[in-house]
Computed example of a mutant assay.
Amino acid sequence: MKRRHFAASAALATLAPWLAAPAPARSLMPPPIRTRTGRLMQLSVLDRDSGRELPLHFHEGEYWVAGRPGARYALRVHNLQGERLLAVMSVDGLNVLTGQRASVDQGGYVLDGGERADVAGWRKSDDQIAAFEFTAPGDAYATRTGRPEHLGVIGLALFRERAPLPPPAVASRSEEARAPWAADAARAEAPAASTARQAERSRAPAGPAPQLGTGHGAREHAPVSRTQFTRAQSRPDELIRVRYDSRENLIARGVIPAPRPSRPQAPQPFPASPSEMGYVPDPPPRR
């Protein structure tokens, strides 16, 4: 299936060389916050209510996102290649197109070279989705359908497209039936059983019980069209995994540093800003 979109200085006396203006403050720019991951195709998690991409926190070899209960979100993808790519997408271990237990050999979204798209919900038809929204585990779509084992994980299995096959050589009628290019095309579409079993065996590492899942939200208009795609190989060319949970759980896991406790403000010896510095003014007149 194919989606289309988508410093003022103070005056000082020159007779006193030991008086010096304060040195200009250095600009300490914080390191950039990463919001996207992926080599062939970039993936980010978009908070649809605020319109911003959520920060990715890298911890022990995995990317994590802190979700906000009740917030609608979308999977924002950007094909970085100059060719079509197939993205088989899963949320909470379920295929976002069919709702089935996810496997890398299932269908997905096809993006043209350089195309960007927001996948914002469970596909209900060619014209509608049910919005993704962060929710309590008991209200998650996977839980409500009896499959809560993989809450809190988003997956993309990416596939390159097989180059068009050359036309068959001119042959007699008896030779046309056993032309080797026809057999090659059938094998290219056969799923790799070992890859599917390996994906099914993968399990999330131990940690606090998840506090978030993805709900089956309100219906929205989101039309798509259908297309044909032949994979260059049965194994994914890239596999992207992003986990999500509540901010409290990510702090408990050590993914996000715990906030420092607030302390009373201590008296400061130089509370004035540089722009306020000058000579000592006269006190106000006595009353």
Results as ranks from 00 to 15, higher is better:
Q198T: 10
Q106V: 02
S246M: 02
G278Q: 02
A13F: 06
L97N: 12
E53A: 10
M89V: 15
S202G: 04
R178H: 13
G217N: 06
A21T: 14
E200T: 13
T214H: 07
L250T: 02
A157S: 12
P271E: 03
L19R: 14
R231V: 06
R26T: 11
F58W: 13
R84I: 01
L156C: 11
A10K: 10
L56C: 05
L12Q: 10
P283W: 05
P257W: 00
P22M: 05
V91T: 09
A186H: 06
R76K: 14
P208F: 02
P236E: 04
S9K: 09
A157E: 11
S246C: 02
R260C: 00
A157Q: 08
Q211I: 03
L56A: 01
T195W: 07
A130F: 06
P167E: 12
R101N: 08
Y244H: 15
A23T: 13
P274C: 01
P168I: 09
R34T: 14
A190T: 14
R241H: 08
A258P: 06
A66M: 08
T98V: 07
Q198M: 11
A163G: 10
T214N: 08
L94Y: 03
R178S: 12
G108V: 04
G215S: 08
D49Q: 11
S50Q: 10
Q198G: 11
L165T: 13
G207I: 07
G82N: 14
A7G: 12
Y141L: 13
A179Q: 15
A142P: 02
S174I: 01
V110R: 04
E238Y: 06
G146I: 01
A272H: 10
R247M: 02
P167R: 15
D282Q: 08
S50I: 04
P24E: 08
Q228M: 10
Q233W: 03
G61N: 03
A252I: 00
Q233G: 15
D118P: 05
L165S: 14
P269W: 01
P281T: 05
G254N: 05
R84Y: 00
A87Q: 05
T135L: 08
R84T: 05
Q211W: 00
A10E: 13
Q198V: 05
A186N: 00
V91F: 08
R52S: 07
G67S: 07
A188R: 09
H216W: 14
R243F: 03
P24L: 07
Q106G: 09
E248V: 08
R197N: 06
A222E: 15
L156S: 01
L86H: 06
R101S: 09
E200W: 11
D49R: 03
A186Q: 11
P31M: 12
A25Q: 14
R241T: 12
L151S: 04
V110K: 03
A131G: 10
Y63M: 04
A272V: 01
A66D: 09
K2P: 03
L15I: 10
R39A: 11
T195C: 03
R123G: 00
P148Q: 03
P269A: 13
F132D: 04
P137T: 09
Q233H: 13
V104L: 07
L94T: 04
S262L: 12
R219W: 06
M41K: 02
